[in-house]
Write a protein that binds this DNA or RNA. Structure first.
Lengths: 156, 156
DNA sequence: CCAGCAATCTTGACTCGTTCAAGAAAAGCG
DNA sequence: CGCTTTTCTTGAACGAGTCAAGATTGCTGG
């Protein structure tokens, strides 16, 4: 639950990115640290636990600039809203549950930069390869086994 | 521009998937064939060129069932709306332009099923690995070179 | 070839994540 | 300690996608 990144660390991160240090920004960073892969709404709720006066727009703005500055990473699996995480810099990937949307970190087996070498990129200048693993999370796997009958399951 | 898939082929595809053959569905299939990676709005416009009376809801429904049945593939890069393509069955990937959203097909260099072997999936049962290459398309690369001064460039 | 059922489509309202805009607040500089 | 610029608040708006109810239409069996 708790983490070792100190308040001062966050302050350094912000200053290092030429961003002003504000209460909303620190609160957002703390929220994202506590809730990896949280969507904007969850971040907003978490932020307001410590800073009740922060507007939803501020959270959108903050997450936006933090993502642009590379302090947080924004992920957005198909069919899901935007989610955020603090873990940046290491090219890791994500497993997404098709039924509940749960996200888990996955270190690429191949090592750093998985299959960044695409054969023919049609002239595109590629700077990043993102891998998303689709499947079923442990919780949903169990549910499925139990209520085997459920018809409408696969996609949607 | 034109394609070799005949009307009869589409009919077979639909019947094979236990789907009724309707004018809207055939029109959607033709539209997706003509416009690979088109979003729903573009598909709607294309459909109405031949079937003016088709509702937007019908297009959503049709694209939905076609995707569920595996007759079309739905892709949705972060920050983009849903896009569709006919090319299914071969595990190919996509290059997405960060500046204009253009999408191009990319055959994975590693062969079939790229890095589907994730090291630790935290108990997730993975059934698919999706790779998205992020970069700049040829057109946008050229633009960038020309107007080198542009400051706000990177993301967004 | 036609009746009947179920799947599909039309119409129109509505949700929800996200963005836009304008003015108030506060961070950091000199 | 003011000033300038960034950041935040407030409140409205946008747009992709969804929901719901009733009208149509595809397909099956007689």
């Amino acid at each position: 639950m708790d983490d070792h990144t100190t308040e001062a660390d966050f302050e350094h991160l912000l200053r290092g990115a030429d961003l002003r240090v504000t209460r909303p920004r620190l609160a957002v960073l703390r929220a994202v640290r506590r809730h990896p892969h949280a969507d904007t709404g969850s971040v907003l709720v978490a932020v307001r636990l410590e800073e009740p006066a922060v507007s939803h727009q501020a959270v959108y703005d903050v997450l936006g600039v933090l993502a642009e500055s590379g302090l947080v990473r924004r992920i957005q699996p198909a069919g899901s809203v935007a989610r955020y995480e603090l873990r940046v810099g290491d090219n890791h990937h994500h497993a997404v549950c098709r039924s509940c949307g749960e996200v888990a970190d996955v270190d690429c087996a191949v090592g750093v930069r998985p299959c960044l070498d695409a054969s023919d990129t049609h002239g595109f200048v590629i700077d990043e390869a993102e891998v998303t693993y689709w499947g079923t999370c442990p919780a949903c796997s169990t549910d499925r086994t139990r209520s085997q009958s459920s018809t409408t399951e696969g996609t949607r």
